[in-house]
């Protein structure tokens, strides 16, 4: 038997393993890759992590509740495209403006989030009310929503958002562009919600044992529905940020990000069985992915090496999960 302090320390290390891995990876890259150790490189990693990071929050919440959402990437693209069409001035953009001009910022944000929430609500309805399998429902949405993006854009793109929106991607605060701060703030807010509010506690418990939570009088269906709407709305926010970053939208915007988000969630320590996972770990997972991505770029290796490493990391993360469980059992 070990003391409770030692146990707490081991638990802490296990909980934050992905942060430790991130620190090691950054240290190794900084020492071995020329030009890696620069503020600009680190800022770039954080900036690149914005979109997958925000999206991964919604995915993580749905997965912690014991479900699955494959639709987030397409939902993000739809929100980005609608933002582009409404507020970009070139290509298929209709360049909608407001007086005062700054009003386009909250307006475009509200529309993007609402579009995402609508897709999420549709998923929620099919899963909770129609009792369809979440994997199938959201896979279908992944396909049809991307189809919708291509349809409404006619395969063309929208360019040039108004400077009142664009500044979010350009203006830095403490070196980091504002859109990346949005992602960081989202992580802080949702970490708080998951850890310190009954909503987060109930979502976690539903993922652990839905029958027990139902018997305890928790409104399981309602909370599961909310988790899907939330994932949609957050993906809408990710789409808005992505549109700002690209100053418009293309029909294939964000393709492949779903897999990065999934990898980040798994690497970050969220169990696909539900009930287990912390949002800060997910953010560390996203940062880890883009740290490696950046290293491969800097070394001049082709991008598909990133994919191979990512695949390996996902497997390693799952193996690690099993190992962690065994260590915890020994502790108890």
């Amino acid at each position: 038997m070990i003391s409770s302090r030692q146990r707490a320390l081991v638990e802490f290390l296990l909980d934050n393993l992905v942060w430790i891995m991130l620190a090691i990876v950054l240290a190794v890259f900084s020492l071995t890759i020329p030009n890696y150790f620069q503020i600009g490189i680190f800022v770039n990693i954080i900036e690149q992590s914005t979109f997958v990071g925000v999206m991964a929050i919604g995915l993580a919440i749905v997965v912690i509740a014991g479900n699955m959402d494959l639709s987030i990437e397409s939902t993000m693209a739809l929100s980005a495209m609608i933002t582009g069409i409404l507020f970009a001035s070139h290509g298929i953009g209709i360049g909608f403006t407001t007086t005062p001009a700054w009003l386009v910022l909250p307006l475009s944000l509200g529309i993007a989030v609402a579009v995402g929430a609508v897709i999420g609500a549709l998923n929620a309805w099919l899963v909770v009310k129609v009792r369809m399998n979440a994997f199938i429902v959201t896979l279908a949405a992944f396909i049809w929503v991307r189809g919708l993006v291509v349809a409404i854009s006619g395969g063309r793109s929208a360019q040039d958002l108004a400077p009142e929106i664009r500044f979010m991607a350009i203006e830095p605060f403490l070196y980091i562009p504002l859109i990346a701060w949005v992602a960081i703030i989202c992580f802080v807010i949702f970490t708080f919600i998951m850890r310190k509010t009954p909503f987060g506690r109930h979502i976690t418990m539903i993922g652990g044992n839905a029958v027990a939570t139902f018997r305890a009088g928790i409104r399981v269906d309602r909370l599961v529905a909310i988790s899907f709407v939330l994932a949609g709305a957050i993906s809408g926010l990710a789409g808005w940020l992505l549109a700002i970053r690209t100053s418009g939208a293309t029909a294939n915007l964000g393709v492949g990000m779903l897999f990065n988000a999934f990898a980040a969630v798994v690497i970050g320590g969220v169990s696909l069985k539900g009930g287990i996972g912390q949002l800060p770990g997910v953010y560390a997972g996203v940062l880890l992915i883009y740290s490696i991505h950046t290293a491969i770029n800097l070394m001049g290796l082709p991008a598909h090496y990133t994919q191979m490493i990512l695949g390996g990391m996902v497997l390693a993360a799952v193996l690690l999960d099993t190992a962690k469980l065994q260590i915890r059992q020994k502790l108890a």
């Binding site: 509010t197 009954p198 976690t204 418990m205 044992n209 027990a212």
Partner: peptide, 30 residues
């Protein structure tokens, strides 16, 4: 068949669905 959520601690199970909260700016905080 017991009704516990094994993925959370004893305290969370004890208060399942009836958590003690304090409202801060309208947000219930555990």
């Amino acid at each position: 068949d017991l009704s516990l959520c094994t993925n959370v601690d004893v305290v969370a199970n004890f208060f399942m669905g009836r958590e003690i909260v304090k409202r801060c700016f309208g947000i219930p905080v555990l």
